[in-house]
C-alpha cells in the first residue's frame, strides 16, 4: 500500500480523529453507546456508509455540477443508509430494534457528509474509499471505548457477559445507573478527548482570545 493510501486509511484513527479532533458525530455516540453490541453494529453501519458514499461521490466527481453537489451527496448517503438499515432489519433484527432511529440518523451524521464534501469530491475513487473506511474506524474506536466504559460501569457486563457481578444478582458491584443515561457519554467522550490531547499535544486548540487582558483594562 502506498504511503498516501496508508495515510488516508490510518490518519483518521488517532491523529485526525473525526470525533476527538473535529468533535463530529457526537449525537449517535451519545445515543447508541449504552451497551457494546449495538455500538459495534453502529460502527459497521457507519463505516460501510462512509466508505461507499465516498467512493460513489468520488466516482461522479467530474460530472457533478457544483450547484447541486450537496443534495446529490445527501441523496447518495440517504440511499446507502436506507439499504444498511433494511439489511440490519433483515439480518440483525434484535440489534436493529435497539438502534431504532439511529441507523437512519447516519444520514445526518456530519462525518459522512464532511468526508464526501471535503475529500471524496477532490480525490480518486480508491483513495476516497480508504478515507471513508479510515474515518469509520476513527469513529468506531471512540464508540467502542465509550460503549465499553458505559456498559461495564452501568451494568457490570460486556456484550451481555457479566464481568462485574451486580448486587442484584448476588455479586458485589453496585451498577452506576448514570452511566446508562446520555450525559455520561459526554463525560466519557470528554475524558477521551482530554487523554488524546494530553498524549498528542499538537491537537490542543489555540485559545481564541485572552480574557485577562480585558480585566486589566477594566482595572485601569
Amino acid at each position: 500500500m502506498s504511503s498516501v493510501a496508508k495515510r488516508a486509511l490510518l490518519e483518521p484513527v488517532v491523529d485526525n480523529n473525526p470525533v476527538t479532533l473535529h468533535v463530529l458525530g457526537i449525537c449517535s455516540a451519545l445515543a447508541v453507546t449504552t451497551s457494546l453490541l449495538p455500538s459495534l453494529y453502529m460502527c459497521v453501519a457507519l463505516t460501510v456508509v462512509a466508505a461507499c458514499a465516498n467512493a460513489a461521490v468520488s466516482a461522479i466527481r467530474h460530472v457533478l455540477p457544483s450547484s447541486i453537489r450537496i443534495i446529490v451527496q445527501m441523496t447518495i448517503i440517504a440511499s446507502l443508509v436506507i439499504v444498511v438499515d433494511e439489511s440490519l432489519k433483515a439480518f440483525a433484527f434484535e440489534t436493529s430494534r435497539e438502534l431504532s432511529v439511529f441507523v437512519g440518523l447516519i444520514i445526518t451524521n456530519c462525518i459522512v457528509l464532511g468526508r464526501t464534501e471535503s475529500f471524496a469530491s477532490k480525490n480518486p475513487v480508491g483513495l476516497s474509499f480508504l478515507d471513508g473506511v479510515g474515518n469509520g474506524l476513527g469513529y468506531s474506536v471512540i464508540l467502542i471505548l465509550v460503549a465499553s466504559t458505559r456498559e461495564l460501569l452501568g451494568a457490570g457486563t460486556l456484550l451481555g457477559y457479566t464481568i462485574l457481578p451486580s448486587v442484584a444478582d448476588g455479586g458485589w458491584y453496585s451498577p452506576n445507573g448514570m452511566m446508562l443515561l446520555p450525559p455520561s457519554a459526554f463525560f466519557v467522550i470528554g475524558l477521551i478527548i482530554w487523554a488524546v490531547r494530553s498524549w498528542k499535544v499538537e491537537q490542543v486548540e489555540k485559545p481564541e482570545f485572552q480574557i485577562h487582558e480585558v480585566h486589566r483594562k477594566e482595572a485601569l
Binding site: V63, P65, S66, I68, V72, I76
Partner: peptide
C-alpha cells in the same frame, strides 16, 4: 458541467 441541461441530467441519473 454547469449548464442547466447537464445539471438536470445528473440529478435525474443519480435519483
Amino acid at each position: 458541467t454547469e449548464t442547466v441541461a447537464r445539471t438536470l441530467l445528473v440529478a435525474f441519473f443519480v435519483s
